[in-house]
Design a protein around this nucleic acid. Structure first.
Lengths: 237, 237
DNA sequence: GCCTGTCAAGAACAGTGTTCTCGTTTGTGG
DNA sequence: CCACAAACGAGAACACTGTTCTTGACAGGC
């Protein structure tokens, strides 16, 4: 027998699956998640609607597939942007890549990070793995910066002062499950940074900044750099 | 003649319009914006689908109406929360009210601030007016705090240092159109605060914090208070 | 070689937004 | 007071959607 992965049947299947995914992505960009039509996807691929059901059991599963792909593409871009020897530069690159990918792929970003659908929560098997990649990458860099003694002690101390026991406990249980042991105030600072910068990016991509800042590029760059400059000493003493 | 606003016809119209709005809101909470069905709304109200079109020219216009209502309800709650003699307390109340309303009305919050629909942008006539109410309210409080000399000078100075000309220009044109004249660094600090806290709230409501912080309440309160404490002196000298 | 399981296509069903037409009801001017 | 006109709600119809079922055709293992 020809192996299952190289048989004529298997190859055609892979090709069609890829064609469906790209067509679905094109439709997503055009009409948004709510307007994504299986029939339009089938038309674009050149097959019947019912044939789609040999590849995805339902429209929701197709959307889940697109969500996972979006998370992974975003994480790939962010990890690539965070590849730098100097920790400060790595964090700068990471967050600029975070924003750049979101601005370049607004539909995918909105699908992954936007308004949740009441009835449907994407099954966590793949989504949380892909969704936490970015957080873990950023946390690893912050841990490295801490190990190198480059996190501003004042900021850490101020944050530790304001840390509530409820938050500390939840941060630690998450850290125990996903990462190396780190002082809780570093975790808190990490989450603060994440929330601020994700808020920045999502407001820009969702158009909430447009009435105030029609061109948000300089403001976004400024916020990222300011936030990191306040947290990390730019060169080691 | 009976006046147009008190006639039997006009009164019935107002009643039915209100019934439609509440039914649409109920449906929105149940199925989300994407799944909002005119037929379900009509069934709930007890009229035929086609009768809906005497009140809203299309489904999109109904959604726009809900968006405007959401913005206004949110702004009402926020303004009520920001009513306090002491500026620091007023800002605390404002932002806690901002979050509390969002957590209590996730569907409306998601509709107003969530993923935009590619094809459709809500017509700005009513939406921007309602959407900017909160920003103006927060800015007015910050201006008052500045006038009372209660904004931390170090924070302002640090922010002024990092202010890019592009951002400064856009902030000033917005300020010229919508508010009283204010130093640009105060505007920048205002926007920073807005972005950070809106990011916090939207991440919580959209479930993005759930993997890290299953119960985000203590963290959210902590971030709001920390952010404000760093910006405003708690009691006048 | 046949036989089984995989595959694509088409028809069909229930649901959707939207439009049109039809009597009925309400308000108003003569 | 009565007639005319506008507003109104109901129902049928159209094009579209996701999903399921049935019908043939074709690749792959014995």
């Amino acid at each position: 027998m020809t192996t299952a992965s190289t048989g004529l049947r298997a190859r055609r299947r892979q090709e069609l699956l890829a064609a469906i995914r790209t067509a679905a992505l094109k439709e997503l960009r055009r009409t948004g998640a709510a307007g994504l039509s299986l029939r339009a996807v089938a038309r674009d691929v050149g097959i019947a609607v019912s044939a789609l059901y040999r590849y995805f059991p339902s429209r929701d599963e197709l959307l889940t597939d697109l969500i996972v792909a979006a998370f992974d593409a975003h994480a790939d871009a962010v990890e690539a942007g965070g590849a730098h020897d100097d920790v400060a530069e790595a964090l700068r690159g990471l967050w600029h890549a975070y924003r750049a990918w979101a601005v370049a792929h607004p539909a995918e970003f909105g699908l992954a990070y936007g308004t949740p659908v009441p009835g449907y929560v994407a099954p966590p098997e793949h989504t949380v793995r892909a969704g936490t990649r970015i957080g873990q990458c950023a946390l690893a860099l912050l841990a490295r910066a801490y190990a190198e003694g480059r996190l501003d002690p004042d900021t850490l101390h101020r944050r530790a002062t304001r840390l509530s026991p409820g938050t500390a406990e939840q941060l630690e249980t998450w850290s125990d499950r996903h990462g190396q042991p780190i002082p809780t105030e570093v975790l808190a600072v990490w989450l603060d940074l994440f929330v601020h910068l994700h808020g920045l990016v999502s407001m820009e991509v969702f158009g909430l900044l447009r009435p105030i800042t029609p061109n948000a590029t300089p403001y976004a760059a400024e916020v990222i750099d300011t936030e990191l400059a306040a947290l990390i000493t730019t060169r080691r003493s």
